[in-house]
Amino acid sequence: MDNTLPLSQSDSIALLYGKPLDKVPAGLYIPPDALKVFLESFEGPLDLLLWLIQKQKFDVMDIPMATLTEQYMQYVELIRKNNLDLAGDYLVMAAHLMAIKSQLLLPLRKADTGEEVEDPKAELMRRLIEYQKMKLAAQELDRLPISGRDFSPVDVSKPESAPDLPDVSLDELRRAWRSVMARIKLQERHTVTREELSVREHMSSILKQLQTRSYVEFTDVFENTPTFAHALVSYLAILELAKEAMIRITQAAPFAPIWLTLSHREETLL
């Protein structure tokens, strides 16, 4: 039995102890599944043709059809007798290559209209070029990071006990103060009294409220303010506490409620 594998002289089927092997050793058993895995490594006849062209460094626009057809048939012959279902598409392409090769062997004739006859390889070259473009595009897409393969999404949530709210702007604080003043003027009585008010006492009162509550809304500080003078002193107490970094004034979004909370330094002291 002749075990010589029909390959070109420059190629070998394997390396044995560093030496090229150009024929299958006698008595070597090749499982049918090995041939199946071998051909399934290609994605179809065009993929096999493109691999042969690139391996031999052929020009796609000038393919030596005789050499390409011969090499292609060598690979198809490996599986034709073992797995005909797997080789079906490859056999169709083999017949197409044989037809092109036969047309190239015939004398070149001009058409009746006088125009030049189309090159039999033109359609095959067009399909190979399009397939090569699609394959390169697929490789470029595969290089892009893919969720679950190259990276894993991470869901990071802030603890509810320590929200990181943005600092309130001066315009928002001024707008809230004007709103409080407008409400107090509607309830204010025009009485003339002399009362000594202490900013320090109001600062202590605000700090006591914040000891029992994590957050106090800006307007709640003025909820039980009887007069404009009391409201003014409470507002100065808030500004003084913020200046001394004993409280933080925060607001989640423009026109949202303004909140007062103890600063980290004040919480440590308490």
Rank of each mutant, 00 (worst) to 15 (best):
L28K: 03
K185F: 06
L144V: 01
K135R: 15
D220K: 08
V60G: 00
D47I: 02
L262M: 15
I100T: 02
K55L: 15
E195G: 04
D62K: 14
S157D: 05
E115L: 12
A182R: 15
T67G: 01
D150L: 07
N3I: 01
W177K: 08
I129C: 01
Q74L: 06
L15V: 03
S102M: 05
S169Y: 07
L207S: 09
A99D: 12
T225A: 15
R143L: 11
I30C: 05
P257A: 03
Q132G: 07
T250C: 07
M93S: 11
A229E: 13
A99Y: 12
I129G: 01
Y29E: 10
G44E: 13
E77N: 11
H230N: 10
L52Y: 06
Y90L: 12
I184P: 01
S169E: 14
V168P: 04
P226Q: 13
L5E: 04
Y131I: 00
V221C: 12
D171I: 09
L7M: 08
E118H: 03
Y17Q: 14
L52M: 07
D112Q: 14
S198A: 04
I258C: 13
F228W: 04
T219I: 13
L104C: 10
L104V: 00
P31T: 02
R126D: 08
T250M: 09
L86P: 01
V60K: 04
S205Q: 11
M65Q: 12
R178A: 11
T225D: 15
E140M: 04
I79V: 15
Q187E: 13
N224W: 10
E195Y: 05
R183I: 03
V37I: 06
R178D: 09
Q139I: 05
S214D: 14
I129T: 05
L7P: 01
N82L: 09
R149W: 04
M134H: 10
R109Y: 05
L50R: 08
P166H: 04
M181V: 02
F58P: 02
E160M: 07
K121L: 15
L124V: 03
S10C: 03
A122M: 09
E77T: 06
W51Q: 06
G114I: 11
E115T: 10
K208E: 08
P166N: 07
L52H: 05
V192A: 08
F222G: 01
L21V: 13
L105S: 11
F58V: 00
A252V: 08
H202M: 10
I206N: 04
A252C: 02
V24D: 02
V24Q: 11
S147R: 15
V199F: 02
E172V: 01
I129Q: 06
M246N: 11
I63E: 07
E267W: 08
L105M: 11
L270I: 08
Q187V: 05
E240C: 04
V180W: 06
Q251T: 02
E188D: 06
L28H: 03
